[in-house]
Design a protein around this nucleic acid. Structure first.
Lengths: 208, 208
DNA sequence: CATGGTTTTTGACCTATATCAAACGTATTT
DNA sequence: AAATACGTTTGATATAGGTCAAAAACCATG
């Protein structure tokens, strides 16, 4: 594990709005987020954007670029952030020597595939309220896993970015927040979210 | 590469409708499709299904299960098919000795992530006509890569399965096929598709 | 701390797709 | 070959979410 540390010794900081990488750039390294918050997005030629994910500390970014050695999306800092660069060829070399590292890498890639499946499910067969509930519960769970409150957090992204991620227009996102608030499920003050009724919010997404 | 052959020596056949694996089953092997056609799907507890992909010969299935050692979706044969089983722990062992195999595995996993990004884009920000056009062009490209006609092929899946994959109802899929036919873009006779105007179909999905 | 720009909320109205329903085709079984 | 089940097409109607617009809240900057 010392060797792994050596691998990830290159650190860099990004100001809010800065690009970690852009679609089309040559791929060399994965990036581990140490602090901060990122989004990844794909841009259509006609200007439409699709946010493909929001990443927080401990998560790995850039896996999509392995297959062609070219980044297939943009990664943008949503707040001032710090990342570790992981040169991919060195990671591959090292993982040939460390089976546990190899296994770990495979699990990370597989987890990304499972995450994407979840988003397909969300975009393909959920209604607006279910999508937003699923989104908030996912954030809640990830904040919680990092030692933060599962019920009270600050949204780093705009309504338009949430909408793009969820396949909804920003107005629909805003209205759905308002509905949830009216029904006592949560309190929202713009970017500040407090979940009042986790149970009921959960029943929204998987209404058995 | 001889060693790889030894790895994939376990072959099995499946009749149409049979399950290669089911959600929740223990994961041990990846599967390479030799002949035939599969779909993968996730089922909600409330009965809604989401088709997450259609797989054809040469493609690898089961990558989602690596992260938890449990399959997270069903894989169902859409026609009589033959697959190669690839025991995953042996694949990992072998890929530690063969850097080119290691690289190949990583590229395959990454390609799956990129594929999923494309579906997110499709589900999140395209209209019905664009979705179906993108779907048909994707099939066209994949048939073509396997030496079959890019313009004339047989659909192995039902309208309902296409709809589930594209986040549309089967009636919408059917109507959109009819529209395309009325506009001279293609001829459809139920499962038999003939693309008459590839160029115009392309301009549908990436209308610059 | 005033200013200009962005983001969010809310309302009124519209449209793409869903829903419901019926007829029709196509496969499978007997 | 008839019977039955399943998949597809098409029409009429409903609705969730999109669009357009304006006001309000927020926030960065000089």
């Amino acid at each position: 594990m010392l060797q792994l540390d050596a691998l990830t010794s290159l650190k860099r900081t990004f100001r809010r709005g800065e690009y970690l990488y852009r679609c089309g750039e040559h791929f060399q390294s994965l990036f581990a987020i140490r602090t901060g918050f990122f989004k990844t997005q794909v841009l259509h030629e006609d200007g439409r954007e699709q946010v493909t994910g929001f990443q927080m500390p401990g998560e790995i970014i850039g896996l999509d670029a392995i297959c062609t050695d070219v980044h297939t999306c943009d990664a943008v800092a949503l707040e001032d952030s710090e990342i570790c660069e992981i040169p991919f060829d060195r990671l591959e070399t090292l993982s040939r020597e460390l089976p546990s590292l190899q296994r770990h890498l495979h699990k990370i890639m597989s987890r990304e595939i499972v995450r994407d499946q979840g988003i397909m499910m969300l975009l393909g067969s959920m209604r607006a309220e279910e999508r937003l509930a699923a989104f908030l519960l996912n954030l809640s769970q990830r904040f919680s896993a990092r030692g933060y409150s599962p019920t009270s957090f600050y949204l780093r992204m705009t309504r338009q970015e949430i909408g793009s991620y969820l396949g909804l227009k920003l107005e629909t996102v805003s209205r759905t927040f308002s509905h949830f608030q009216e029904h006592g499920l949560l309190n929202v003050r713009v970017r500040e979210v407090e979940i009042m009724d986790l149970i009921r919010l959960r029943s929204f997404v998987s209404h058995t």
